[in-house]
Amino acid sequence: MLKYVVRRLAWSIPTLCFVTFLVYVALRIGTNPVESYKRINPRASPEKIAQYIDVNGLDPNYVRGYFRWLVNFITLDWPRSIKGSREVAPALKDALANTLRLGTAASVVGITVGLLLGIFAALRPGGRRDVAVNTAAFVGISIPPYVSAILFQLFFAVYWSRWFGSTLFPTSGVYPPGQTGFNLGLMIRHMVLPTMVVAIQIIAVYARYMRSSLLDVLSSEYMRTARSKGISERRVLFKHGLRNALIPVVTIAALDVGSIVGGLIITENIFSYPGMGKYFLSAFGEGDFPLLMPWMVLIVFSVLLFNLLADVSYAWLDPRIRLE
C-alpha cells in the first residue's frame, strides 16, 4: 500500500509538469500576459516590460518560456503580481486557508447530511420520505450556487434586518469591516451562509448517490443472507449494507472535487469571501499571470491528490481491489 502511494506520488510529478505546461499555454493564449501587463501598467518602461517577461517565463517560445517559469517556480523565486505590489505566496496562502476552512465546513456538513438523507430515503424506496428526499435532491441539483447565494443574500441582508431589526448572518467577508484579530464567533457567523450555499449542492449530489448505491446493495443477495442469520436490522444495515454502499460513492467523490471547487469559486465571489475563488476570478479578470500560475498548480495538485485519496480509500473499503 505504502509502496503504491509513493509510486503514485512520484508519477504525479510528470503529470503535474505536463498539465501545468498545458495550463501555461492556455493562459498565454487566453489571457495574453504581456498585453495585460502593458494595459495595467500603461507607463511601464521597456526595461520593466522585458524584466516582467523574463521573470514570468513569457518567452515567445512556449517551451523555453515554460522551463524558465518552472525553474523560477521550483526555486520559489516567484515574481510579484502584475501591479508589482503583491507578493504572491502570502496572498495564495491566505486564500487557501480561507477556502480550506469554507470547503471543509461545507464538505463535512454536505457529505454527512447528504449520506444520511440518502440512507433515510433508501430504507423505504417509493415511500413518502423517499419521494420527499428525492424531490428535494432534484431541486438541490437544479439550483445553481449563485441562485441560492443571491436569494440568501436578499433574505438575510435585506429582509431579515428589515423585519427583525438585526443582522442574523452577515453576507460578506470573513469579519465585519474594521475587525482585527481572531474572533471565532464572528468568523462562524460569516461562514454560515456561504457554507450553506456550497453544502446544498453537496447534500443533493451525495443524497442521490447514496440512495441509489444503497438501493443496489439492499436488493443484493448477501443482505438476505445477513438477514437470514437472525441479526438485528440495524446490524444488517450498518455492518453489511453501508460499507458496500459506500464503495461506489467514494469513487464518485473524488471526481466531484472539481465541481465542489467550482461551487466554492462562485460562492466566494458572491459573498466577497477572500478565498481561492475570489483570488482566481480577480486574477483572471486582470490577466494577472504571476498570480494565476501558482493557483493553477495548486488546483492541479489537489485534483491529483484527491484522485489518489479516492483510490486508496476504495481499496481500503473493498478487499477485492488490489492496488498495484
Partner: peptide
C-alpha cells in the same frame, strides 16, 4: 479524464479566452 477532473468553471473560463484569442 483531464478535463472532467479539473474544476469545470476554471476550464470553461480559460478555454473561453483561449478560443476567443485564436
Amino acid at each position: 479524464d483531464l478535463f472532467l477532473a479539473f474544476p469545470f468553471l476554471v476550464t470553461l473560463l480559460v478555454m473561453r479566452n483561449m478560443l476567443g484569442a485564436i
